[in-house]
């Protein structure tokens, strides 16, 4: 049977390589950095790789957090001293920002490996 040709084998090998590399994506979902926010007795969770704005309500008023380009900061807060805004952007797991007057606590969680290993879009 002269059905298969050399090029078929080459295409099969390339396809198998694509299939095998697609398994890499499973690693991306473990220890991906997340932003945990606690305000009052509630908790919010955000993906650090997804840009977003979120507003939380505390005893003083509103605290608005912004996630952009894999970093997080307090964009605006109704508290007097604005220490949380001055804290600037944080991004590494373990980093945190706190707004004491408004009782809002922002913490980056995740493993360093996932941070460096590339939360990127090259898996395809």
């Amino acid at each position: 049977m002269k059905q298969f040709k050399l090029g078929d084998i080459a295409l099969l090998v390339i396809s198998l390589a694509i299939v095998i590399s697609s398994f890499n994506s499973y690693g991306d979902f473990t220890g991906k950095p997340e932003v945990h926010v606690r305000a009052g007795n509630k908790e919010w969770v955000y993906d650090l790789s997804v840009d977003t704005f979120a507003t939380f309500y505390g005893p003083v008023g509103e605290t608005t957090m912004e996630i952009r380009d894999g970093k997080v900061h307090v964009h605006d807060s109704d508290c007097r001293n604005k220490v949380c805004i001055a804290a600037g952007w944080v991004s590494r797991p373990g980093d945190w920002i706190i707004c004491l007057p408004n009782d809002v606590f922002i913490l980056v969680e995740g493993t360093m490996a996932a941070q460096e290993g590339g939360v990127d879009d090259t898996a395809f």
Binding site: F4, K5, G7, D8, I14
Partner: peptide, 14 residues
Amino acid sequence: RWISLVGVSIGGAM
């Protein structure tokens, strides 16, 4: 010359 319809089909499906 180097690829049969099997290879063509594989390429198309991928």
